[in-house]
Computed example of a mutant assay.
Amino acid sequence: MTKIKIDGFQLFCMMFIFILGSTLLLDIGKAARQDAWIVPLLATIFGCLLYLVYISLYKKYPNMPLTGYIIKIWGKYVGSAISFCYIIYFVYIASRVLRDFEELLISSSYYVTSIITLGICMTFVLIYSIHLGIEAFARVTCLCFVVILLTLFILNVLYIVGGYIKVENLQPVLANGWGNIWKELVPLGITVPFGELITFTMILPYLNK
């Protein structure tokens, strides 16, 4: 497999933006009320452990994407079926996320625009990015990463200065026990978005180091 020029920082930027994605729209951990912050904290820990599995598979098959070594592990027929399900699953995920952002844009800035028009425009952007290739996509992701990081930093500073962050709202901690936290954590808190990082098993073989 030809090594294309994607370095570790570009991979990190892609993963960072991927994890943000539409996760902010899902309001994960809401049922845990004041303990909602514990859900993403635990999900991050479990997500890192899950990603170690992806990394270990990559180290064992460094020149093959997931759809390649799945066939090698499970055999031609079962492996091909799993690979096909993987592709269909992420086509579904991509379609759902596209729909989420369409509805977000319709309800905020583009309320007089057809949702189909927005979908077509966003799809053409995706087609163009695929046409340019993964290297160009990775470079643009680094630029977006900087913009997002600065935006989040400024917003958080303004929240602190404005007095909107009240630590007392987190109390009492674990007032309702671990029940609601585990319900929010398993499976949604782990699978979205950390479980979906499995998609990067298709990119890892293309790293330059």
Rank of each mutant, 00 (worst) to 15 (best):
Y61H: 07
P62F: 10
M64E: 08
P65M: 05
L66E: 02
Y69G: 03
Y69P: 03
I70E: 02
I71G: 02
I71P: 03
K72Q: 08
K72C: 05
K72G: 00
K72T: 05
I73V: 09
W74C: 13
G75F: 13
Y77I: 03
V78F: 08
V78Q: 09
G79D: 00
A81D: 04
A81V: 11
I82T: 03
I82N: 04
S83V: 08
S83H: 03
C85G: 11
Y86A: 05
Y86F: 15
I87F: 14
I87L: 15
I88S: 11
Y89I: 00
F90M: 01
F90K: 07
V91T: 10
V91I: 14
Y92R: 00
Y92W: 12
Y92K: 09
Y92F: 14
I93V: 15
A94D: 02
V97P: 03
L98H: 11
R99T: 09
D100K: 08
D100T: 11
F101S: 07
E102T: 06
E103N: 15
E103L: 14
L105A: 10
S107C: 06
S107V: 06
S108D: 00
S109N: 09
S109W: 14
Y110A: 08
Y111K: 06
T113F: 15
T113D: 12
T113L: 15
T113S: 14
S114M: 10
I115C: 03
I116R: 14
L118D: 01
L118T: 03
L118I: 11
I120T: 04
C121Q: 00
C121P: 07
C121I: 13
M122A: 12
V125N: 00
L126K: 01
I127N: 00
Y128V: 11
Y128C: 10
S129E: 07
I130V: 11
A136G: 04
A136P: 07
A136I: 09
A138G: 05
A138Y: 06
A138N: 04
R139Y: 06
V140P: 01
T141E: 13
T141F: 14
T141N: 14
C142Y: 00
C142H: 06
L143A: 02
F145V: 01
F145R: 01
